[in-house]
Each structure stands twice: as structure tokens, then as C-alpha cells.
Amino acid sequence: MTMALEIVGGLLLVAGTAFLLLGGLGLVRMPDVYNRIQTGTKATTLGTLLTLAGAACLQPGWTVKLLLIGFFLLFTNPLSSQVLARAAHRSHVAAAPVTEIDLLDEETGEEA
């Protein structure tokens, strides 16, 4: 039983790390700030959650505290990404040319 838990925990840790790596890669590859926020801060949500789950399997005594960390993450992560994106948009950070449509910008353009 302990053995099985250790294997599952190890696999979860590896999977979580893989998603974190992909998040880092996205940070480098994405064309503008909005897309970078998307991959850099949020594709890592699953990575961190899987890492926490892996840690919980390896150290069952920590489960409650790890759950709390995950809960905090789920509440703070979207808030910070959203505020960053809104701040970028309000200070007119240009989106990449590949961006097809920006309804928010058209709206504010009408008001001005």
C-alpha cells in the first residue's frame, strides 16, 4: 500500500513538473503580454495542484495543509492574473499583431 502510494505520488510529481515546464516554455514562446499571462501564470495551476497532490501521497500527514495551499492558489491565482491583464490593457499595452479582435478596446474607443 505504501509502495503504491509512493509510486502514484512520484508520478503525480513528475506530471506536475512537466506542466510547470510547459508553462515556462509558453512564457518564452507566446507573442504578447496577454498570452504570456495565460500560459505563464495559469497553465501552471494544474502543475502546482498535481505537485501538491503528489506531495500529499508521499506525506499523507500533510494532506490537510496541502489542500489549504491548493485552495489559496485557486482563489489568488485568477485574481492576480486578471488584475495584471486589466492593468496591462488599461495602460494600453499593445496586443500582438496576430490578435484578431479586441472588443474591449473598441468599446473604450467609443467612449473617448
Binding site: L22, G26, P31, Y34, T39, I101, D102, L104
Partner: peptide, 19 residues
Amino acid sequence: HIAAVVLDPALPVRPGIVR
């Protein structure tokens, strides 16, 4: 889905802000 986009050499993003 995002992992597939990031790993794709062509980086098939089609960003936009919708309402």
C-alpha cells in the same frame, strides 16, 4: 490544450478579446 499549442512548432495561437 494549451500544452499542445505551446509544443506545436507553428504556435497556432489566434488571440482575441471577446465580450
